[in-house]
Nucleic acid binder design. Structure first.
Length: 198
DNA sequence: CGGCCGATCCACT
DNA sequence: GTGGATCGGCCGA
């Protein structure tokens, strides 16, 4: 087991990072409660040239400013007024690449996940859907800007990080698909920037 | 300041 | 398959 370090997130190829994240554990510590899931679906957002990205054209707003932070920073935003969507900023500072985490397979703390989601059982798709990822793991848009590579040692502060627990996903088992919900992006909506374990 | 709308989810038909 | 929920962010006036 090893915690993913800054080096992992600094990779200049956001598409590569999106694929490498499959099989990694996404772990949160909220109010001292640890929950985690194995990442099974991601989407890459390729910065200023990507019409689907919030940073397209170099746009900077109060919300998206964190996308310009150094790789390994959390970018979480509110979608449809209801869902917090969790992204991992990648690449060096001022290059606003990000990977949206679209799905996890619940691992540790499943009882807490059930409580957070109001469901009775964990099923195969309990953690599939970007809103559901955050719901299960207790991630809120107020956590935007958290550093995923340098953890606070205070148990009572929110913590989000990733772990490599030696799960290797063979490239042949990665499905490459168009991204979801980005029809407004014109030709970029067709890019195969969505990755899931097949 | 007002109005529109979204990198979604779920209940309901 | 469809539509409502729900509200912060973004843009135009």
């Amino acid at each position: 087991m090893s915690i993913l370090t800054r080096e992992f997130y600094l990779c200049p190829d956001v598409v590569q990072v999106a694929m490498d994240l499959l099989g990694k554990h996404l772990v949160t510590r909220m109010d001292g409660i640890i929950t985690s899931g194995i990442i099974c679906e991601t989407e890459a957002y390729a910065g200023v040239s990507d019409r689907a990205s919030h940073a397209y054209g170099g746009r900077r707003t109060a919300r998206t400013e964190v996308m310009y932070a150094i790789g390994g920073t959390a970018y979480v935003y509110l979608c449809y007024g209801v869902h917090s969507l969790f992204n991992i900023v990648t690449n060096e500072a001022d290059i606003p690449h990000a990977v949206l985490i679209r799905g996890i397979m619940p691992a540790e703390g499943q009882a807490h996940m059930l409580r957070r989601s109001g469901k009775e059982r964990i099923t195969k798709d309990s953690g599939v859907g970007p809103g559901k990822v955050s719901k299960l793991l207790g991630i809120h848009y107020s956590h935007s800007g958290l550093d995923l590579a340098v953890l606070s040692d205070k148990m009572d502060t929110p913590g989000i990080w990733l772990e490599d627990r030696d799960i290797h996903i063979n490239r042949k088992n990665i499905l490459m698909l168009p991204r979801v919900g980005v029809d407004y992006a014109g030709e970029d909506a067709l890019l195969p920037y969505r990755f899931k374990i097949g």
